[in-house]
């Protein structure tokens, strides 16, 4: 190739060298961390949805224990209680459970050898409450008492608190793990950016000593590394979205498992990842360039 130059066709070379193998590893590391962060975000959303599902399910139902009086059979007492409750405002449905069902519920506590027919098993009424304006325990108890029924309403409030506490804990743990991974991703992006820029220390020096303003140099590196990290973030986010979509598709209506139900809209949560990675890299590159320049002054 001739070393003579066609002046008319000459175009200025970029101030910074083209991407090289070091940049490849930076892209890989950032993409992997973004993938993990996005996947965690999806898991957090799914666990939050699951937790909300559990509590909604419990708050929408109540169980009534009916103890028959001497002059009444258990079946008729349960039927009367169900009929009474069905008329209470805020109750969507009240259904007396069959004797077998009540026995089946109590059997695990007493063991298979026990003859349940000898025991006065109370009958149960399953109540489904209206979601808009659910009836409270007091109203239902009053209604039952007014009909001369010996019954008690269990609105699950005793263990609802435990469930809510458990759901809230799961939610916070998920968010904490996400925060941890997102912070680690940010730190790695910043660290990898610093390493990449430090490797081009000589370019910073030459530009500086040739009279380039500090902001000009910082902008060059900022733009380069922000673009690189944003592309890596895009790869990571796309990978996590594909993984989320697969889990959703494989699991049918409720996602991979009802414990972690993923919705299609959850996949949108990965969209800020490229921007966030780009921003972190831009800030890291700017700070690193400034610190290198300060070292030259």
């Amino acid at each position: 190739m001739s070393d003579m130059l066609d002046l008319d066709r000459w175009k200025p070379a970029p101030f910074l060298p083209d991407a090289d193998a070091r940049d490849g590893s930076l892209v890989f590391v950032v993409a992997t961390l973004c993938f993990l962060a996005c996947l965690t975000a999806l898991a957090v959303l799914a666990s939050d949805r699951a937790a909300r599902g559990w509590t909604q399910q419990l708050t929408g139902e109540a169980t009534v224990i009916v103890r028959p009086k001497a002059n009444e059979t258990p079946d008729s007492a349960a039927a009367r209680a169900a009929e009474t409750l069905a008329g209470v405002p805020g109750v969507a449905e009240a259904r007396a459970l069959e004797k077998e069902k009540a026995e089946a519920l109590i059997a695990p506590w007493l063991g298979e050898e026990t003859d349940l027919s000898d025991l006065p098993i109370p009958r149960l009424v399953a109540v489904v409450l209206s979601p808009e304006n659910p009836a409270d325990t007091k109203t239902m108890n009053l209604a039952l008492r007014s009909q001369g029924l010996d019954a008690s309403v269990d609105d699950h409030s005793v263990w609802m608190k435990d469930i809510e506490r458990g759901a809230s804990l799961a939610r916070w743990i998920g968010m904490a793990v996400f925060a941890l991974i997102a912070t680690a991703a940010g730190a790695v992006v910043a660290f990898a950016t610093r390493a990449g820029l430090a490797a081009r220390h000589e370019v910073v020096e030459v530009l500086h000593l040739s009279g380039a303003e500090d902001a000009f140099i910082a902008r060059l590196f900022q733009a380069r590394f922000a673009r690189m990290a944003a592309i890596a973030g895009l790869f990571g986010a796309a990978g996590a979205a594909i993984m989320g979509a697969l889990l959703r598709l494989l699991g049918g209506g409720s996602g991979l498992t009802p414990v972690l139900p993923i919705a299609w809209t959850d996949l949108l949560a990965v969209t800020p990842a490229p921007l966030a990675a780009g921003l972190v890299a831009a800030v890291a590159a700017r700070l690193t360039a400034q610190s290198i320049i300060r070292g030259l002054q």
């Binding site: 130059l5 200025p12 060298p17 030459v206 530009l207 040739s210 009279g211 380039a212």
Partner: peptide, 24 residues
């Protein structure tokens, strides 16, 4: 020397002028 290895001889010489913001 501190020449920029990714730039041609011509680009290395033009560098201070580009930094000043001059048009090619």
């Amino acid at each position: 020397f501190r020449l920029l290895e990714h730039m041609s001889a011509f680009d290395n010489v033009a560098l201070p002028l580009r930094i000043e913001g001059r048009k090619p």
